[in-house]
């Protein structure tokens, strides 16, 4: 049997085994979350937050307008609420996964998992990538229901995608920079500020607002406020740079 033939026989077998390990690892995390009731909370909160935004914000806007007599108060910022909503669901899913990872690190479970078939890469896929993909789907389904301003299908997909990238960045920041759950909680507070970059294009004049260039959410805000698709590129590019830097840090940390 030739080497090529051996390769073609071997590679799918290994991949299948890896996938099985990743699947088991993900299901294990779901069981852990179910025990803490976090699974229920993570499942319900996007719906509750969506309903609160969809019904609450226009009601508050109406009340404020009648109270102040101004023609518009929150109206110009409806799209900002859409950006936040599209980022909150993935960030929350990735945050919950990051908390599980911090627990596993403090209990020294992660290093045992690394030496199994799962490996480091599989561990990170099962703990961050799969929850992020699930969050992307949920965000893309719920955003059209609870949106306030964005209407096009492409924009909904873009917001869900950029929100998912932010969720991954927040999880990687928390997990890779902190060495225990206490530092992780401290970093969560800092990392969640990343989402606030979206406010830059709404409240800061150009070119001063470009000081927030390192935040992916800033570029997401620009895509919406300027209505120019060209800003999709820096959104993805800045996110990918963050993910690559943090991923490199991850592998250094464990080697």
């Amino acid at each position: 049997m030739s080497a090529a033939q051996t390769g073609t026989l071997h590679i799918p077998k290994v991949r299948k085994k890896d996938m099985r390990a990743i699947q088991i690892s993900f299901l294990h995390m779901l069981k852990f979350m179910k025990k803490d009731m976090m699974l229920l909370a993570a499942g319900l909160s996007p719906l509750l937050m969506g309903a609160a935004i969809r019904l609450g914000i226009p009601a508050i806007d109406k009340a404020l307008r009648s109270f102040t007599g101004l023609s518009q108060i929150l109206g110009p910022y409806y799209s900002l609420f859409d950006i936040f909503y599209s980022a909150i669901t993935p960030s929350m899913f990735c945050f919950v996964a990051a908390m599980v990872m911090l627990e596993e690190r403090d209990d020294h479970i992660d290093r045992y998992l690394f030496v199994t078939d799962l490996g480091k890469r599989g561990y990170y896929i099962s703990r961050i990538v799969i929850p992020a993909l699930v969050a992307f789907v949920i965000s893309a389904v719920l955003l059209p229901i609870f949106r306030l301003a964005v209407s096009s299908f492409a924009m909904i997909l873009f917001l869900s995608f950029s929100g998912t990238l932010q969720g991954i960045i927040i999880a990687l920041l928390v997990v890779n920079i902190s060495s225990n759950k206490l530092e992780g909680m401290a970093l969560t507070k800092c990392a969640s500020l990343m989402m606030l970059g979206a406010m830059g294009p709404y409240f800061i004049e150009r070119p001063s607002s470009h000081i927030l260039f390192f935040m992916p959410s800033y570029w997401t805000g620009l895509v919406i406020t300027e209505g120019r698709a060209i800003y999709v590129l820096p959104t993805v590019l800045v996110s990918v740079i963050w993910i690559v830097i943090l991923s490199c840090g991850k592998f250094r940390r464990y080697t």
Binding site: F32, M33, D36, M37, M38, L102, E103, K181, G184, M185
Partner: peptide
């Protein structure tokens, strides 16, 4: 017994 429990 876990951070997620505490947060909830």
């Amino acid at each position: 017994s876990s951070l997620n429990q505490f947060i909830l």
